[in-house]
């Protein structure tokens, strides 16, 4: 392993990010502090990128082969997605979330995951692996957030003080999450063509991923044309999340599970 300097680089990055997260937290009270948070995030990110470049040069190949290297790429791309989303949508918590996730991946690498399963079946060893999983992780996280908002909306209207802003937040989250969901699904199709010879085989996980996609598609279409029917929209959003949960965890318990190539959690 040419990861000799990794503890140094990663601890600098993680420290800068933790400091940045603190500033971000303070910035909810005092807005001016927020730029320090950003500076710290970017500084930590630059350090990480320097390490990736160094590693790449030393290995003389793209560092995309082992699981540890995969996590390194997660950690590198997560802040980028966080920044892009922030620049566009101004969600501080989302930036914090992606930075924290990136930090977590660095920490896992730092704590030496060698005792954990290192074996990766040949079909999973593909350049599509990272984008496919990364994009799905993000999409699920954002859509989960949208359904938390939906529950809040329900509670509010039960209390009789529903605010339309709640649903607008849910809308934005669904749009971002749905964009990522679409990407995950399509990346999966492109990968499947390379690995199994066909882009779509109605594998149970694929079926439920498709259903999840359709669920949010219903929400988007419904919201677009029935702006004032907020209750129904909230219900659709909650149901769509149930389908997402079935896709994520539930498939393994359905009678169709043993015909799936995606039941990785059983091993």
């Amino acid at each position: 392993m040419t990861w000799i300097d990794f503890p140094l680089y990663s601890s600098i990055s993680i420290s800068l990010w933790i400091l940045g997260l603190l500033f971000l937290l303070i910035s909810y009270k005092k807005e001016t502090v927020f730029k320090f948070a950003n500076l710290l995030f970017i500084a930590g990110w630059v350090v990480l990128i320097l390490f990736v470049i160094k590693l790449w040069i030393e290995l003389d190949r793209p560092p995309m082969r082992t699981l540890g290297e995969t996590r390194l790429w997660y950690a590198t791309f997560l802040p980028l997605i966080g920044f892009l989303t922030y620049i566009r949508w101004k969600y501080k918590w989302f930036l914090a979330y992606s930075i924290a996730m990136a930090g977590m991946f660095l920490a896992i690498n730092y704590m030496n995951p060698e005792t954990y399963s290192k074996t990766l079946m040949p079909a999973l060893q593909s350049p599509w692996f990272i984008p496919h999983v990364l994009v799905y992780l993000f999409s699920y996280a954002v859509l989960a957030a949208s359904s938390i908002v939906a529950v809040k909306g329900w509670y509010d209207s039960y209390k009789g003080k529903f605010n339309i802003e709640t649903l607008k937040l849910a809308d934005n989250l669904v749009y971002i999450g749905f964009a990522f969901l679409t990407l995950g699904l399509l990346f999966g199709a492109l990968w499947a063509k390379e690995a199994w010879g066909h882009y779509w085989t109605w594998d149970p996980k694929e079926v439920w991923a498709f259903l999840t996609w359709m669920g949010y598609l219903i929400y988007i279409h419904y919201r677009h044309f029935h702006i004032h029917k907020t209750q129904q929209a909230l219900t659709i959003l909650a149901l769509a999340f149930v389908v997402l949960l079935v896709c994520w965890f539930g498939v393994n318990y359905l009678p169709v599970a043993n015909t799936s190539v995606h039941t990785y959690t059983q091993y």
């Binding site: 566009r88 949508w89 607008k168 809308d171 934005n172 669904v174 749009y175 971002i176 749905f178 964009a179 990522f180 679409t182 990407l183 399509l186 199709a189 492109l190 063509k193 882009y199 919201r223 677009h224 702006i227």
Partner: peptide
Amino acid sequence: WLPFIYIGIFMMIAGAFYMFWMGNKIT
């Protein structure tokens, strides 16, 4: 028929980026 499917898939990928960037019109 694969080229047509890929054209469709790449249009949707571009559409997903567009969607991410533009968000919901109503909102």
